[in-house]
């Protein structure tokens, strides 16, 4: 279920923790699996559980608790826009509206071509760069004015 490469990466994470605490690597393992598969299907979660010797529901608890794990399929690019107060004061809501309009989808929706999914996010710790936005969880973009959004969308292929 998990590729050799994913297993190798997970092993690296496991090594950070005491020998009897493999479970500590579960957040990394889920992240690694999600990057590889696009989202966390039940089989993927079960595979992670198996790999780390955890009960599947214990892994599911983790996967469903943290926002950045996707328990259902998402587009190739998941755009998460922060609309929390500090961002909202400097255009966060506008940025979300702009994206909704431009992509023709609402929050938690995916464009028909499967390219973009739009999500509403909570504070990303980048309020100084408002509006802040995450691309596929790992790329944090600031100052997302319409121009910047256009540029970003054009660049994402």
């Amino acid at each position: 279920m998990l590729s050799q490469e994913a297993q190798k990466q997970i092993d690296r994470e496991v090594a950070k923790y005491p020998a009897d605490q493999k479970q500590s690597a579960v957040m990394s393992a889920l992240r690694i699996a999600q990057v590889e598969k696009g989202w966390l299907a039940p089989e993927t979660i079960a595979a992670v559980a198996d790999y780390l010797g955890m009960a599947p529901i214990a892994v599911y608890e983790v996967a469903s608790f943290y926002n950045m794990y996707d328990l259902s399929p998402v587009g190739r690019f998941k755009l998460t826009v922060c609309t929390n107060l500090p961002c909202a004061l400097s255009g966060g809501v506008h940025a979300a509206d702009y994206l909704k309009h431009k992509l023709g989808i609402g929050f938690n929706e995916t464009t028909p071509d499967g390219k973009f999914t739009l999500k509403e996010g909570e504070c990303m710790g980048a309020c100084g760069d408002a509006p802040a936005m995450l691309v596929n969880n790992h790329r944090l973009c600031g100052w997302m004015t319409p121009d910047q959004i256009d540029k970003l969308l054009a660049e994402l292929e």
């Binding site: 009960a55 529901i57 214990a58 599911y60 608890e61 469903s64 608790f65």
Partner: peptide
């Protein structure tokens, strides 16, 4: 064996 859990938050 943990068969039940509290998922989501």
């Amino acid at each position: 064996f943990q068969e039940m859990g509290q998922a989501f938050r």
